[in-house]
């Protein structure tokens, strides 16, 4: 069999399980990313505008997450938490690890984006009588989120790749399933080529869609010097 035929053989034999594995990868990625936004946005707000103890606490959390590998965090949640009575299945542990990890990074991206909103916008908002909170929700977040889109796109693609750490706790996602198929058929390079193409294609599609989104929500004049 030639390389192409082997690929066809793998797809026709293991197509369904590969497809399911890829769906699982996309699921882990999107849930993890969403968790990251839902936690990251409030974390960044607390870190910038909150009271001092909260600021310090959130800064410590961000440093802790960014200073350790994601796989250590996953093993903590999956293997060490049962010690204090928190038992999670592998899938749940994975999305929580990825979500908590992403929250720290996204909080930093949001923080930088909010910092990139000119100080004069604050003054203008306060001068018409808006409260601090109202200024944040009506002026800073709408501008900051647009500024953050490129960084958040990178984060999403990062998560797509690193959703594969779920492999280590035996979640049957793409890398796990292709490893099993590789071991079974000994067609390692062939099966990994298929999965690599999948990851790269999804990354390219995400990049392109994010560009489109960025253009669609872009506002004339709302540009930032130096991307974050």
């Amino acid at each position: 069999m030639g390389f192409a035929e082997e690929i066809v053989y793998l797809v026709s034999t293991y197509g369904v399980s590969l497809f399911n594995a890829m769906l699982l990868t996309l699921e882990i990625t999107s849930i993890g990313f969403t968790l990251g936004v839902l936690l990251g946005l409030p974390i960044s707000l607390g870190r910038v505008y909150g009271p001092l103890p909260l600021k310090a606490l959130l800064a410590a959390y961000i440093e802790l997450i960014r200073g350790t590998p994601m796989i250590v965090q996953l093993f903590f949640i999956y293997y060490a938490l049962p010690l204090v009575g928190i038992k999670l299945d592998a899938f749940t542990a994975s999305i929580i690890a990825i979500g908590l990890n992403s929250a720290a990074y996204q909080a930093e991206y949001f923080r930088m984006a909010f910092g990139a909103v000119p100080r004069e916008q604050w003054e203008a908002a306060l001068s018409i009588g808006l409260s601090k909170w109202s200024t944040i929700t009506n002026v800073i977040i709408p501008q900051g989120v647009r500024i953050a889109i490129p960084a958040l796109t990178n984060e999403l693609i990062y998560l797509l790749k690193y959703s594969s750490i779920a492999y280590f706790v035996t979640v049957p996602e793409t890398v796990y399933v292709s490893k099993v198929i590789g071991a079974k058929t000994l067609l390692h390079i062939q099966i990994y080529t298929i999965t690599a193409v999948f990851y790269i294609l999804v990354a390219v599609v995400l990049t392109k869609s994010a560009k489109k989104l960025e253009e669609r929500v872009s506002i004339p004049g709302l540009v930032v010097k130096g991307r974050i």
Binding site: S164, I165, V175, S178, H188, Y192, Y199, I200, A203
Partner: peptide
């Protein structure tokens, strides 16, 4: 584009097993 899109674990498998 390829190197930025590929999960590190997968690339390690390609090199080590493939």
């Amino acid at each position: 584009v390829i190197l930025r899109g590929i999960p590190p674990v997968l690339l390690l498998f390609i090199i080590f097993y493939g």
